[in-house]
Design a protein around this nucleic acid. Structure first.
Length: 829
RNA sequence: GUCGGAGUGGUGGAAUUGGCAGACACGCUAGCUUGAGGGGCUAGUGCUCGAAAGGGCGUGGGGGUUCAAGUCCCCCCUCCGACACCA
């Protein structure tokens, strides 16, 4: 191809200009009364940790491609961006430098915004939501107060992570391998008074509604497991006197089981060490042992628990007390064991060693009876048998399978007045208070006389003070800031103190996408109209690390807001479709700032251009998979863009050495290939097969290169249609080079390529008249024959049998011929 | 341990419905661009036997269903991820 002095492709010369024009023209801004059909495309708003790293870039490239793709379809795309700007790293930096987190955070947001713009990502920047914005804080607090009024926010005691060094509660994420992330102190469990959101009210709905979401199956599975619904029976074990007779004065010990059918095999009962009735069962002679055990469990740090990974040592102690197995009428001993948790079920279990491995291990360790109640399958050589089989040693259940036995037992428990069928969830209420500074203050006031009193709406927002001093200890400055702390009770007017807990940052991320739909509203967090127009999010994009917490909390918020009629009543799910992209690894490990193995996009953009980086991201792997930075093919992608440039830039021989007049057969093939490309790329984009789309561009480019080098030369209209169409199809992926080439090809006055309509393939041009038919003998390919696409089965068979190639492998008459015209004929010899 | 996902050339990957395995790219090899080049163009490139023509083998391993299996079924191995004593 000619190398005359055409305008060279220099990304650095063209990219900043286009980025500025997209920003200045407001072409990706959308108003709430926009008449177009809408799409809401959202990438999870990032934590602003400074300039973007390559993982961000991957995420935002996918989102940007979709925004541009839908825009070219004539849709009004809501493409907002925001920043999850509260949280620990900024606070830690503040403690370290003795500086307020706000300027630090604002600077990081500026850096991140600049990197997003430098890769050509387009947003409606007017709608930016920042968690630490006073306006956003106000509405987060306002929503908390509505939840509080509705009983969805409450205060209760809960075991929490306590760092003795920092004298503060830690979020689970702040506990790393049992140590405080900041001070490396061993974290303890403490029971403290805490704020909760009552997400468990929605456990069943959160589970049920998963069915209708267009989300990755694994995310749905993870959420189902996290919610952890189990059906079973809750019933009472009568307390036994020392002589084994029932003590009718004491309330029965409540237990929960999913296997009520195994009741006859219950040979002991186990309570959690923290169970509040432990003392009642403990006899004088066992008191010392029980106390010692409880102390040891309490002292059991996260570290000790981790160290038992793999083989679990069963630790427990006998209380001296006993209960009656209501099935057999016999007294059985009551133990404490650390494998029974207060936080699940009733905090006490009936132990059936024959049918539960943990109970089996415990029974072996403490030399307790084991009674099988389900006949193990033939040849079973394990210990506890958890499978199905006929009941044994179970009187009136004998012979029944597990399902029938469960049902019969359930009826019996109800009849006897012992208990009932129940459903338990693993899901816990959401502990939302954090003893940290850099978060939205909980809008509550503590009054000696009135208790906790909500801050009235007209006093919102409660903002963080500016004049704070960060002590190296890590305690929240709110706890010793007199100006913030002291206030008057909104109810009685007496002296009172503000709540110093701030909200978990997951509260901020639970509704930011709603605010983005109505970011300018100063009457309410959002209007029903705005949500009805834009919500649910049509495509949400983010990392799978948020599969459980963020996405569960956001779903809970949506349902609660709808029930409180803050949001439209029928809007019960926030994200219609979810895509979880894989992460970018480096040196086989996760890329993270703390490891120092991040790749800054700035250097890549400077060296290869934003388009080459975007193309490399799309090309390297299917978006859902993890990718190693080492596998990126930046050079190859950049080379390809140069190739496209040379093909499309005016001034080459291609613009002069072209044929006019009627197209010939070869030209028609190119025209057809162009229509096939439209069909292919549209399909690849729709199904997130961006790597295949890039392959499609490359194949087509190769085809066109061959075409222009034929002796006849290219046909003017055919060539220009092919190139223009490919540029349009590539525009969402590589927006700068396509915009620039379009401008050169169509002039400065023509609308830019991103305002062009998405091409539609002509069905006539997609019709294939001739195909290659495969002729197989015994499943092996022996010949290929060009045949008309509409060939009949009989003709295909005749052609295949006549094939000399195939005949060479046939000794006699074929046993069987399978015909799949026009693609394949298989002759079975 | 439980639940998910994955294993295809030297490398990243493709194969949407059971129907040509390896598209596209990286890398490598050769030729051309009368020279150099981290440039451009063209051709070749799964393994193996063979001088060639041509043959055989081939999608982690083993078995099965089928005219036909990367794709479906059973067993096993390895890697990755999530939850991890949830009664």
């Amino acid at each position: 191809m000619q190398d005359s002095d055409i305008l060279p492709y220099r990304p650095a010369d063209i990219e900043p200009g286009w980025q500025k024009s997209w920003l200045d023209s407001g072409m990706y801004e959308i108003d709430n009364d926009d008449p177009r059909e809408t799409r809401y495309v959202l990438s999870m708003y990032p934590y602003p940790s400074g300039p973007a790293h390559i993982g961000h870039v991957r995420n935002y490239t996918f989102g940007d491609l979709l925004v541009r793709y839908h825009t070219m379809h004539g849709r009004g795309v809501l493409s907002p961006i925001g920043f999850d700007s509260f949280g620990l790293p900024a606070e830690n930096a503040a403690i370290k430098h003795g500086e307020h987190p706000r300027p630090f955070t604002d600077a990081r947001i500026e850096e991140l915004s600049a990197s997003l713009r430098s890769i050509g990502a387009v947003y409606d920047w007017r709608r930016v939501v920042k968690s630490h914005d006073p306006d956003y804080i106000k509405w987060s607090q306002w929503i908390f107060l509505r939840f509080y009024e509705a009983g969805l926010a409450y205060r209760a005691y809960a075991p929490v992570n306590w760092c003795p060094g920092c004298k503060t509660v830690l979020a689970n994420e702040q506990v790393v391998d049992g140590l405080c992330e900041r001070s490396d102190d061993v974290v303890e469990k403490r029971n403290l008074d805490q704020w909760f959101y009552k997400i468990t009210d929605y456990a069943q709905e959160l589970l049920d509604d998963l069915d209708d979401l267009d989300w990755p199956a694994r995310v749905k599975t993870m959420q189902r497991n996290w919610i952890g619904r189990s059906e079973g029976a809750e019933f009472g074990l009568p307390v036994a006197n020392p002589d084994g007779t029932p003590n009718t004065d004491a309330a029965p010990l409540q237990v929960f089981t999913t296997r009520p059918d195994t009741g006859f095999g219950m040979t002991f009962a186990v309570m959690a060490p923290e169970h509040d009735r432990v003392d009642e069962f403990t006899t004088a002679e066992q008191q010392a042992d029980v106390d010692a055990f409880r102390v040891s469990v309490k002292a059991l740090s996260e570290i000790d628990r981790m160290s038992t990974e793999g083989e679990i040592t069963k630790r427990g102690v006998f209380t001296g007390g006993s209960v009656i197995n209501p099935f057999t009428g016999k007294a059985i001993p009551v133990f404490l064991a650390d494998y029974v948790l207060t936080t699940y079920g009733t905090g006490a279990i009936m132990a059936v060693p024959g049918q539960d491995q943990r109970d089996w291990d415990f029974a072996k360790a403490y030399d307790l009876d084991i009674v099988r109640t389900v006949e193990p399958t033939e040849g079973f050589d394990g210990e506890a048998f958890t499978g199905d089989g006929p009941a044994i040693n179970s009187e009136w259940l004998n012979g029944l399978g597990v399902t029938e036995a469960k049902a019969k037992t359930m009826d019996w428990l109800v009849e006897q007045g012992l208990g009932e069928a129940t459903i338990k969830f693993r899901l816990r209420d959401w502990l939302l208070g954090r003893q940290r500074f850099w978060g939205a203050p909980l809008p509550m006031v503590k009054c000696e006389a009135c208790g906790f009193v909500p801050v009235p709406d007209d006093q919102l927002p409660i903002l963080l003070p500016d004049d704070v001093e960060f002590r190296p200890s890590g305690e929240s400055p709110l706890t010793y800031h007199e100006g913030f702390l002291n206030t008057t009770c909104p109810k009685c007017g007496g002296p009172a103190q503000r709540e110093t807990d701030t909200m978990d940052t997951f509260v901020d991320s639970s509704w930011y996408f709603l605010r983005m739909a109505d970011a300018f509203n100063d009457e309410a967090p959002f209007s029903h109209e705005a949500l009805e127009k834009f919500l649910p999010v049509d495509q949400y994009i983010g990392g799978v690390e948020h599969a459980i917490l963020h996405l569960m909390y956001a779903r809970f918020f949506m349902k609660a807001l709808a029930d409180l009629e803050i949001a439209p009543k029928t809007l019960r799910e926030p994200m219609r479709r979810l895509f979880t992209q894989g992460m970018v690894r480096m040196g086989g490990g996760k890329m993270s700032k703390s490891k120092g193995n991040t790749v800054a996009p700035e250097a890549i953009v400077a060296a290869h251009g934003a388009d080459a980086l975007r193309l490399a991201i799309l090309q390297v792997k299917p978006p859902a998979e993890d990718v190693d930075w080492e596998d990126f093919q930046l050079d190859g992608c950049e080379r390809f863009l140069h190739r496209v440039w040379r093909l499309a830039i005016p001034g080459t021989d291609l613009f002069t050495d072209v044929r006019s007049g009627a197209p010939d057969a070869a030209d028609n093939d190119i025209a057809k290939a162009t229509h096939v490309l439209i069909e292919r790329i549209t399909n690849e984009y729709e199904r997130w097969a961006y790597n295949n789309a890039v392959a499609g561009f490359m194949e087509f480019t190769n085809t066109v290169y061959k075409y222009v080098q034929t002796p006849e030369g290219p046909h003017a209209e055919t060539l220009h249609f092919a190139v223009d169409t490919m540029l349009k199809l590539m525009a969402p992926a590589v927006p700068h080079i396509t915009a620039e080439l379009w401008r050169h090809r169509h002039g400065d006055d023509a609308p830019q390529i991103h305002l062009e309509r998405w091409p539609i393939a002509d069905p006539e041009m997609l019709i294939v008249s001739e195909v290659t038919m495969i002729v197989q003998v015994n499943g092996k390919v022996r010949d290929r024959i060009e045949v008309p696409a509409e060939i009949s089965d009989a003709d295909a068979e005749a052609l295949a049998l006549a094939s000399a190639e195939a005949q060479g492998y046939l000794t006699g008459a074929p046993k069987k011929v399978i015909v799949r015209a026009p693609k394949l004929v298989n002759i079975v010899a």
